[in-house]
Design a protein around this nucleic acid. Structure first.
Lengths: 154, 154
DNA sequence: TATTGTTATACTCTATAACTATA
DNA sequence: TATAGTTATAGAGTATAACAATA
């Protein structure tokens, strides 16, 4: 289709950054599509996920766990609250802080939505053997944990 | 690696999607920072890269090679033209099409900018051995080529 | 009627900074 | 003076659809 006579210095197809960018955007779009079909979107996912892991956090703690900005947390929680998935309750010890809790509905969708995420991951990993899948994840983990010191937290 | 007493169904740290998303955003931000220091940004990169690979394409061909939308190509070229890196010339056979060429300046920055990209890739891959680096890239390539049938073009 | 490219418009996401109210 | 959270505002980036010019 394209004989590529010129041989550029950084062939697109073998550039690590290009490979990761393509994979990442395909993965993101795939999950985003599934979430949008349910009236949600990928931008709400990190916060929901963090809350499924642990409920009753302050917004500051949520902000840290989602690696976002505090104003992003505010907006995302506004949206999730409007959709009835989350509620802000007063902090028992500080009148300026809130504790964020999942509503009944917010808890109810956990299984369905994490199921979609798991399915997305499996779809993408399907071309690899079980050994290759584990190796791929551990290699990426090795790179990431170099940069996010908190990644190995128990 | 993760002692997690509660044992959520999809631990964040072992989710393939999460790993790729974190890696991708770190990589993107790293290159974007370097490009912004030179008055450019990551959104201009795919088009510049495609033109360094091959000059004198129509906007439609550029749009295909960058996997974007036609209106995005228009905007990106406007920006690159303003910066004097690119120029639109009339197509010899069709008066509605343009051929896009790099200017002298646009060609001059290729080596410097691809050097930055190569350096970014190397920085991220540094924690891995040469074998691991090659393996990681080939595993990602295997997944991607499943989805982008055009990816294996030589 | 289809194609090439531009533009109007709007929506999402992100970023800065100012703001309220607590502590 | 610092912290928790909200809001105003602006800027990217992206998406839809309408549009002009050409084929």
């Amino acid at each position: 289709m394209n004989a590529g006579k010129k041989g550029p210095k950084l062939p697109r197809v073998t550039s690590f950054g290009w490979l990761v960018a393509v994979l990442g955007s395909e993965l993101a779009q795939s999950l985003d599509n599934k979430l949008r079909a349910k009236g949600l979107s990928l931008s709400l996912w990190p916060t929901l996920f963090a809350l499924w892991e642990e409920d009753g956090l302050t917004q500051t703690e949520l902000t840290i766990r989602c690696s976002t900005a505090h104003y992003t947390t505010t907006r995302v929680l506004d949206t999730l609250e409007t959709k009835g998935l989350v509620e802000r309750r007063p902090h028992p010890e500080s009148r300026r802080a809130h504790l964020v809790y999942l509503t009944k509905e917010g808890k109810k969708i956990e299984e369905e939505l994490t199921g979609e995420a798991i399915q997305t991951n499996e779809e993408f990993l399907a071309p690899l053997s079980a050994d290759e899948q584990a190796h791929l994840k551990s290699l990426i983990f090795k790179i990431i944990s170099e940069r996010l010191p908190d990644v190995g937290r128990s």
